[in-house]
Design a binder for these strands. Structure first.
Length: 463
RNA sequence: UCCCUGCUAGCUCAAUGGCAGAGCGUUCGGCUGUUAACCGAAAUGUUGAUGGUUCGAGUCCAUCGCGGGGAGCCA
């Protein structure tokens, strides 16, 4: 096992003259007359360790199998590099092969791969520059999310992945069953007899942990979830996954403005953390993927988010003089083209839109005094659109019950959600943030399938 | 799900309906320190699948499959 101090990241900072063992995968190799250069990487940093092999120092038969893609252990001395490009390099004394890689069939070369091709070799793309950077950033971001909440005293709550509560209402669900689909048990009426199913009733993969998180917020004050969620929507876009990770904080004694404050602080904190933890990786994204990434991130960290009510947003769009594919009028939901206009052209930074018409938002959102709008907020970001959706929750029992009845929802299914308002209710608020959406923002990557290790999308669940 | 678009060598892409091509990678050779190294040579093809039109189809038509962009749904 590799210990702290032995990763290539550490060897690159190590002292000259020290004899070390370097373990990793050969990224590329360049040969000259009397000397070979091997770029070795173990995933611990963007920077490769350059291994220098002087002619004759390593047996011919070993050099023959030390090719692109091979996994090796190199023993040698850390020396100051005489050439530009790296401060130190490893002068090889011995190379041991763990696993070879036939260069004739090894699919990764050092230039010119498309993301689509790399996605087809998800078992090897992890060794490429791009995906090394992506998944180091993903790790750093996950870490930053936890420390952001932990530092504020939030309690991490594990909401269920399988749910039978049938009231999450955030989109189409994947059903979970152990019934024999070829020959399911039937009731007298000929319907599926879910009493005989594993949980005794229909069960699904969760689409949101929010309702469960509210239970915890009304006992632990400030909580958050961070886990996988599932949507069985037939969405085929670069921004949607069937399985994705969501961050959902929920705060008691919090209103919409507290919610907005947390959303902004949270985004700034996590972005800043990743910028500090992964400077080399972000430099790479800025250089090769999207040359506006660093500028945008810096701007987000330093600027105040724009706040605008839905009503004001509609007015801005109406006055823009644009012709919209989807008409703008008070009461219509904002479309992609409208969101983009607000973030990319009007304000050129993240925008928080609040107080939407109640008709286009969920039943649990807190009604405003005007009788027309609810305390909802969407955080819109340039290039990727909606990144956060949240609201202050309706904490008044009678108002919530009334809404459930008016929207024709199954009152019984919400019995515990209603009881939270019956016993010790409190104003509370929260939001949901798509982890991979934030990854897109941080990396400048264009397709959400390329910021999750193993993407699941309609008709695709490989690896 | 809808609209547009693509599918040719391992990869990225060319090819008026008329001989299947290049760059990169690979292999071999050269080069005294390279950084997506450089120079020379060679090998590499069921043109996504199935039908159809045609003297002749990579090219035109139909259906299907897979990918990409946009939209809807949303995070």
């Amino acid at each position: 096992m590799i210990h702290k101090g032995e990763y290539l990241r550490d060897l690159l900072r190590g002292e000259v003259g020290k004899t070390v063992h370097a373990h990793g995968w050969v990224k590329t190799r360049r040969d000259s007359k009397g000397i070979s250069f091997i770029q070795l990487n173990d995933g611990s940093s963007f920077q490769d360790l350059q291994v220098v092999v002087e002619a004759g120092s390593i047996p011919e038969e070993v050099m023959k199998v030390t090719t692109t893609g091979a996994c090796v252990r190199v023993t040698g001395e850390i020396v100051a590099s005489p050439a530009a490009g790296q401060p130190v390099e490893l002068k090889a004394k011995e190379i041991a092969l763990y696993g070879g890689a036939d260069p004739a069939t090894y699919p990764l070369q050092k230039k010119g791969h498309t993301m689509e091709f790399l996605r087809d070799i998800a078992h090897l793309r992890t060794r490429s520059n791009t995906f090394g950077a992506v998944f180091r950033v993903r790790n750093a971001l996950a870490h930053a999310i936890h420390s952001s909440f932990q530092e504020r005293g939030f309690v991490y709550v594990h909401t269920p992945i399988i749910t039978a509560s049938d009231c999450e209402g955030a989109g189409a669900m994947f059903q979970v069953t152990t019934l024999d689909m070829m020959n399911p048990p039937r009731t007298d009426k000929g319907e599926m007899d879910y009493a005989k199913d594993f949980f005794g009733k229909p069960a699904f993969l969760t689409v949101s942990g929010q309702l469960n998180a509210e239970i915890f917020a009304l006992a632990f004050t400030n909580v958050y979830t961070f886990g996988p969620t599932f949507r069985a929507e037939n969405s085929n876009t670069p921004r949607h996954l069937s399985e994705f990770w969501m961050i959902e904080p929920e705060m008691a004694f919090c209103d919409l403005s507290g919610n907005m404050e947390l959303a902004e602080d949270f985004l700034k904190y996590t972005i800043k953390s990743v910028m500090e933890a992964c400077p080399d990786d972000l430099d790479f994204f800025n250089k090769r993927i999207d040359n506006t990434v660093l500028e945008t991130l810096t701007q987000v960290v330093e600027s105040r988010f724009e706040h605008v009510t839905y009503t004001e947003a509609v007015r801005i769009l109406e006055k823009s003089g644009r012709t919209w594919e989807f008409p703008v009028f008070w009461g219509a939901d904002l479309q992609s083209e409208h969101e983009r206009y607000l973030t990319e052209e009007t304000f050129k930074k993240p925008v928080i839109v609040t107080d939407y018409p109640k008709e286009i938002k969920a039943f649990y959102m807190r009604a405003n005094e005007d009788g027309k709008t609810v305390r909802a907020m969407d955080v819109l970001a340039p290039r990727i659109g909606e990144i956060i959706g949240g609201s202050q929750r309706e904490e008044r029992y009678d108002v919530l019950l009334d809404k459930i009845r008016k929207q024709d929802l199954n009152e019984e299914a919400y019995w515990w959600y209603l009881e939270l308002r019956k016993y010790g209710s409190a104003p509370h608020a929260g939001f949901g943030l798509g982890f991979e959406r934030l990854m897109l923002y941080l990396t400048g990557m264009k397709n959400i399938r390329d910021v999750i290790p193993f993407p699941r999308t309609p008709a695709s669940a490989d690896f």
